[in-house]
Each structure stands twice: as C-alpha cells, then as structure tokens.
Design a protein around this nucleic acid. Structure first.
Lengths: 227, 227
DNA sequence: TGGAAAACATGACAATTATCATAGGGATTA
DNA sequence: TAATCCCTATGATAATTGTCATGTTTTCCA
C-alpha cells in the first residue's frame, strides 16, 4: 500500500495546512501516519496527551466531554477536512475532549514537533491557524448562548438543520450521517428520552421523516418555526 | 496628562503583548489611544467593526450576545490584563459580542494595522496569541458542557465561586466587583426572578451573605455541594 | 440463527424553571 | 420633598424537562 503524499492531498485545501510550502508538506508526508478508525472507536480520550494533529480525510467524529453528572456532552462534530488537536500544538496541555468516530474514518496523524517548526517559520501558516481558532471561538460563543437561552426542542431543530446542511443526502433526501438518539441527546444536552420524544413529535407533526436511524427534513419552514 | 508607555506598562505581562520587542512596544505606544469608560457604558456592540484590540488596564467588562428570544447572555467577563477583540486582528469579521463596562474601566486601544505587522514578523507573538486562543477555546468548551448539563442552581454557585476567586475582597470578605441580579441571571442563563430566588435561598441556607448588591461567600463547602 | 444486549419508544410522575402579577425599597430627579 | 423609576423580592401558576418504569424493536455476535 502506498502512502499518499500531503502535497498532493486535496484535503489540505480545507484547513490551515494549505498555508504550508510544498517542501514542508513533503517533509510532513515523511513522518505522518495514516489510520483507519471504525465506527464507535476512540481516537483519543479526555486527558490523553495527543502531541500532534489529526487531519480528517474522511468520516465524522464526535468530540465530547464528560460532565460532572456522568453524562457525555458532545461539544462539536468534526468532519472531512478538519484538523483535530490544534491546541496540543501550542500548549503542552492534555486534551480536554474525547474523540469518537461516528462512522468509519480515515485520518492522518502529524507529530507535534514536525509542525511546531513550521509555526515558528511560516507566518501565513500561523495566521491561518489563528483565523481558524477565531472562527471556532465564535462558534463556541454561539453554542453557549443557544444552550443557555433556547429550549431543548429548538436546539434539536437546530441540530437537525445543521446535519442537513453539513452532510450529503441520499436520493430520497435522507442525511447520510446517522446518529443514535443518545447522540442527539448528547448534542443538545438533554436526556435521551427527551430527544426520542421530541423526534417522535417532529415526525408526528410532519416536520421530519425517519426510517430507523435515518432522518430527513420534510418541512424546513416548520422546523424553523419550532420554539 | 502624559500618555503611559506600553514598554513600561505592567499590564502587558498578562497578555500576548509581552512577546513583543521593546522597539515594537514603543511604536505601538505612539499610535494607541487611551480611554476611560464609565460603569454601564458600551465599549462596542455586536456587529461593530472594531478593527483593533483593547487592552484592559483596570476595571471589568461583560461580553454578551443577544439571543433570539431577546435576552442578553453574558459569555464571559473580561478583567485587568485581558485583551479584547483578538479575533478582529486575524479576520475582517465584525464583533460577535457586545462589551459593556461593569465598573469604571481604563483601556488602551491599539489599531489593527499596527499589530498585524507584528503577527507576521514575530513568531513568538503569534504563538503566544495561539496559546491564548487555545485557552479561551478550552474554557468555552467547559461552559458549553456546564450550560447543557448543570442545573441553574449549580451554575450560579459556580459563578459565585468564580467571582470570589477572581476578584479582590474587602476586609469583610465581600467581593469587590458587584453585579446586578440581572447580570447574575445573564451569566448563568436563566430568568432574573430565578437568579434572585436562588440567591435568597443561598442566603437563607447560610451559604452566602449579601448586603445590597455586595456578596460574600460564607460556606465554601456548602456551596460546592449544591446540586 | 437464536438469544442476549442494546437501542428505541412511551406512560406516569416529579423536579426544575419560566412567566405573570404584585409590592416594597432605594436611588435619582424635578 | 415628592414623584418616578429601577431593582429586588416573593407568591401563584404554568410550562418544560428529567427520572423511573416498562415494553417493543433492532442489532449484534457466539
């Protein structure tokens, strides 16, 4: 099996690695490791020292954190093209989040030392990373406000819309990425039973259609009006 | 009145500006503006193009965001030594937050163009800023989990503890920074009446003492055990 | 392929939190 | 100093959400 080369990889267009020079990408190719992760497998756990970044070539990953009451809260979903673990590049802290594959993933791991060198040398690379973290920070602010002010029902409607906008749909309009009811609950921060109940209600009201775990939005306007 | 010089300013120890060279600090001194802001005054609003960073020399500032239901949610408090508006340095986006002084503040404003130049030139400056944003991101993740999983009572107990740990206390142990009941509500994401009720309850249970807006923690362990 | 385990579903009830109404107290201003 | 306004406070009630219990369906794997 041949290892793909970073400088020819399309994925890098989607993240800060695009700011690197060809020579640096070739050097990084030489020390990166490539990995397949099965659905449900743990990439790393809260408290792990990851010492590098993962670049997601395909698949989806949930980033979660264990709360004091023992429930997992999904903080964000990481998709194709995203980098995981940028924070570990600039601090020696361990990860604050656990990463678990939602479906089969292919990721590349680049050791910290290799990239640290580029951050110091290449200003446009570090600027790109600053912009990226700034964007993440803005998204996080929005989530805080939503968690604090919106109802569970409204948050679940938002998640459904987000999934619809973010992922591919099959020929019938069903979102390609499937989550368990527990994942939905963990995304909006509610009890699993509540998530199940609200999804059932949405279905009964004709806002969504479901077959098993597969979900499709039927009435966009209706979903937008949910309070 | 003489304008103070950045290179001699103690405040810069607390933020990324510490990574700058003396020459650069002197140059920045020449183009910065200094400003006093009275309690309740707006430094900038959500949607404003701030085009620079504020460095907080003294005072406290609440950073809030208007939610869909018309309530303000305080996302964080900014204190002495913090920089406000780092995101505006690396993106052209407008601010996502409103900044309002909680008490009298003294801030310095440094125009974007002046600092942008340093970000490109000085790797340890941009690395410091990356570290800082990484920290902020971690804090934001924690807040998301707390908002999603903890009760209002528990969140209010956390806020009281945070205020006690973050700000000075007078000789009787009362926290120097005073917030309105509405501010407390806006910090934990609840109705003002609920915040008032819980503070009254904490007082009745002997966890805190209050005189007017001034608050003091009496029973730390008790407050820690609140659920 | 059968059986266990996990995920989904729903009812009943309890706990939490929001909303509305009302009123007192303290600061500010005419 | 009185009038006014804003903040604080508290009761009553409604709405939301969580918890526990129980049954069904689906998935997984030995």
């Amino acid at each position: 099996m041949t290892m793909s080369k970073c400088d020819q990889c399309i994925i890098k267009q989607f993240n800060s690695l695009r700011a690197l020079e060809k020579d640096d990408l070739i050097r990084i190719s030489g020390c990166k490791t490539s990995k397949y992760i099965k659905k449900g497998e743990v990439l790393f756990k809260e408290g792990d020292n990851i010492n590098g970044v993962y670049c997601v070539k395909s698949g989806v990953c949930k980033m979660s954190k264990l709360s004091a009451n023992g429930k997992d809260q999904i903080v964000k979903l990481v998709v194709r093209g995203d980098l995981i673990g940028q924070r570990s590049l600039v601090t020696d802290e361990v990860s604050n989040l656990t990463a678990i594959a939602v479906n089969e993933m292919e990721v590349c791991f680049i050791p910290k030392n290799e990239v640290l060198h580029d951050l110091a040398k290449n200003a446009s690379f570090s600027l790109d990373m600053l912009q990226d973290m700034g964007r993440e920070l803005r998204v996080a602010d929005n989530i805080i406000v939503d968690m604090a002010q919106k109802s569970v029902k409204r948050r679940l409607a938002d998640v459904l819309t987000y999934l619809h906008e973010t992922f591919d749909k099959d020929e019938d309009g069903y979102v390609s990425v499937v989550l368990s009811r527990e994942d939905y609950a963990s995304l909006v921060g509610t009890a699993t039973e509540s998530a199940i109940r609200i999804l059932s209600q949405f279905k009964k009201e004709g806002l969504i259609a479901t077959t098993g775990k597969h979900v499709k939005i039927v009435d966009f306007d209706g979903l937008r009006r949910v309070e």
